[in-house]
Amino acid sequence: MADHVNLERRRQAIYGWLLLAPAGILLTTFAFYPSLSTFWSSLFSRGTRRRPSEFVGGENYADLFADPTFWKVVTNNLLYAGVTIPVSIAIALSMALWANSKIPARGFVRTAYFTPTVLPMIAAANLWLFFYTPGLGVLDQIGSLFGLPSVNWLGQPETALWAVIIVTIWKEAGFFMIFYLAALQTIPEDLKEAADIEGASRWTYTRRIVLPLLMPTTLFIMVNALINSVKLIDHLFILTKGGPNDASKLILYYIWEMAFAFFDAPHAAAMTIMVLVVLGVVAAIKFSYLDKRTHYQ
């Protein structure tokens, strides 16, 4: 009897591990191992033919903290995230609320909003390059109609980052709108009716009922937008290449440059680890603090 129970238990355990195995193997190969190996290599100096790589501890990190370009890039990325996340969420929400109401040509409106999402980032960047080009670009053409001087949006440090920010918002808002639209459709129609009977205005209903019920979606979008603000740099390659004078350089672009243009893998690894840590902290806040204050249906 006891033997039989033990066998059964072991069988269950093996079954469980087998189910875990695919995810475990994939995550280990492509996430855990690379992260650890990156962390390990960030602790070594850059090896040259003359001076082989040696263990330097936190020296690579110290170098970065002393590097003004690093701080410039961090500031750029904070501004980039601080503007693109709230603005694209606000636009996505208002578009979704509008596209969810009974308007004519609703299908067309939704498709139109979603189109930027379908475009690859590189294509979108090329499109905007045409908008921004001094003299020939659409923006300048329109400006010249009103007698405004030509502006090199991408070519001057004051406007380059903002020009990149606008492209990102344009690209992301439609994508986030789809999530909001889906969430709006799960809110039962009779909640609106109950609010109508009580005499709640459209604004009161939106603020007291719709927005709280959309909170899980907003959280999800916020995390995605935050990841994208670090991850999405394709358009930099087309639009500005981080310039002029690092004015529009974002952290991942700098990591790429460090690793593949300056061939300084250890410093790139150190920066990667710092990005991982920051994103990990934000995710932890999301899952522990904000989740508890959000109503899930």
Partner: peptide
């Protein structure tokens, strides 16, 4: 006032 079939309570 109205009582709905689904009650239409605000879940949050």
């Amino acid at each position: 006032s109205m009582v709905f079939q689904s009650y239409a309570l605000f879940p949050h």
